[in-house]
Design a protein around this nucleic acid. Structure first.
Lengths: 343, 343
DNA sequence: TTGAAAGCGCTAACAA
DNA sequence: TTGTTAGCGCTTTCAA
């Protein structure tokens, strides 16, 4: 049984009794065909189930209308961003080429794959790639770094105002009467330095400089779990701001497993407002990043570069917003001040 | 400043002083060129930084060597599978085209996107698409369903022996002395029916038919949290097998939040052995799916179909394996038998 | 071993 | 409004 070959432009033309060019015009909704012809061509195309060949189109247009996206497949927040990026890209008439960073596929692999796909621009989610290398990549195609601060002037950045986010978090806790507020940081992760700085500034701003306490964390749940244990070896704070939701989740569950009441004994604030924070058994007070806005700006910036439009500010900073859920409450007079051994 | 156009085959040919065809041969490592020529062409290509244009190549070869993958961007286990698929595909000389299912992008969208990318075959991770529709898709290109049972004879399937997995789980619990073992199921999720069946069979096999208790769950953490609450409205079991790790995590944390000791009061067994189960603060006893084997088989099957090789068994079933961690322990004589109100 | 030439399926400039 | 004609960059016969 012979497989019916996929219909080509030519087949449609033949059926409709017109030239290939005409069909191309109709298919692309380009001007230059009468309504009657359009109708006839459309009908023929439908009848044949014609679908234009993207590759041939890309080749002749010498454009792919493809935006490459590098994301961490294990990172819940990246999943949220990808959702936003799909929406933003299709709004701008582009498609997304996804390239995942996995345990066995690093960022360089992911970027290389995208380069091969001939995407026109690249959007990197919280990349760990050094700034110099990113700048180098920018020489090949427009690159937008999403959710990470990059000092290098050559790289476009769209990110949340991380420092402001920590001002919100600390302010919230301070207004609840907390004074001993610790910060579990993200180490060298994207955004970590900014959030650390925001925490310090905010603590000083609230006259709590003496209570500053930064605990080494990271971006995974396990990092949070380890940090939670660390935290409680000394004099435990009454509240903690955590680098991100994943890490905060680790902190939350570890403290609870250790017998502490959250938020009774310790209040916790996360960062991202990823789906993780919204789970009913987590229900984390957190600093929300405006995913749709970040995604829209990132796509917009990539497209602007492709269109050669002038760009005023290289870095676009989106304000965060505090989402209060159930992991924060007023400081308890009798909060634990002695260290306890957990786990 | 003019952008230096990407070098083409022709540029390399000119520099090396040979014809385009020769360059093509050398680049593809095809036979038909002397060692000397090869060397000369290679040097020229390197000097120009030549990279073949994938699209043009796809077009003329009328092959893309692209395997489409539909996955859930929020699903940790899918992330694990994607990692395995990248490895397996590159081993087979194929590339992956990722298409994500997100809150605003359903499976149909994801499949449509891949169809447009002209991938040669498709691998769907735990799809919800009805069997009939999958069968229809198979008429267009080879489709491999990964991690879901499909009765329709037209669809290739690679999956874990879900029922056997529940035999392992129940057997483990039974050997620890548990009798009242409940199952929190996955509803209509991929694999749920098989796991439910496996649970029932295993309970009977161990003479525990009288203790069968199936609680409606789902595949997310929130589903698990809700089920945990339900579970305890009646007479709580001493152990539960849960549809998957995500759901089990919700169960675990909800029970703990309610004051129960896990595994002291209730033992919990998950399914998948996704990264979630391996987190230190979760450390879930679970039924592990052999991710690399599943991925390798799925890619192998897709490639076999593309090569037109005969395929003996339409469905490839991989045995699971039990991973005992810290959420299961021996049944306690004094385990709670009265209902408690949680949350 | 090498080169010429004909596509792959589509777009776009130009003529009619 | 329509059709003709070159490409887009590569692969792949078929001759030389």
């Amino acid at each position: 049984m012979s497989v019916p070959r996929r219909p080509r432009l030519e087949d449609v033309a033949a059926l409709a009794g017109v030239s290939r060019a005409l069909v191309s015009i109709v298919i692309r909704d380009a001007p230059g065909a009468s309504a009657a012809t359009r109708e006839r061509v459309r009908r023929a195309a439908d009848q044949l189930g014609y679908r234009p060949d993207t590759r041939a189109r890309m080749l002749s247009r010498s454009r792919t209308r493809l935006l490459g996206v590098v994301f961490g497949v294990q990172h819940a927040f990246h999943g949220d961003l990808v959702d936003g990026l799909y929406a933003a890209a299709s709004g701008a008439g582009y498609d997304l080429a996804l390239s995942a960073v996995t345990p066995r596929r690093d960022e360089d692999d992911a970027v290389a794959g995208l380069l091969q796909d001939r995407c026109e621009a690249m959007i990197l989610l919280g990349p760990r790639t050094p700034a110099a290398q990113l700048a180098q990549l920018t020489a090949r195609l427009p690159v937008v770094v999403l959710a990470r601060h990059v000092r290098d002037r050559a790289v476009d950045v769209v990110r949340t105002d991380d420092a402001a986010g920590l001002h919100l978090a600390v302010g919230h806790l301070a207004s609840l009467g907390h004074r001993r507020i610790a910060h579990i940081d993200g180490g060298r992760a994207a955004g970590a330095a900014e959030r650390r700085r925001g925490y310090r500034e905010a603590m000083r701003h609230h006259g709590l400089a003496a209570h500053e306490q930064i605990v080494g964390g990271g971006l995974t749940e396990d990092d949070g779990a380890a940090a939670a244990a660390d935290l409680l070896h000394g004099q435990p704070p009454t509240a903690v701001t955590v680098f991100n939701d994943r890490c905060a989740t680790g902190v939350l569950h570890t403290l609870r497993a250790g017998g502490l009441d959250i938020p009774g004994d310790i209040s916790i604030v996360g960062f991202d407002d990823s789906r993780l924070a919204q789970l009913s058994h987590v229900d984390l007070t957190t600093v929300a990043q405006d995913v749709d806005r970040l995604a829209t700006l990132a796509v917009g910036r990539a497209v602007a570069r492709l269109d050669g439009k002038p760009v005023d500010r290289r870095e676009l900073v989106v304000p965060p917003r505090l989402v209060v859920r159930t992991t924060t409450t007023e400081a308890q007079p009798g909060a634990p001040t002695t260290s306890r051994t957990l786990l």
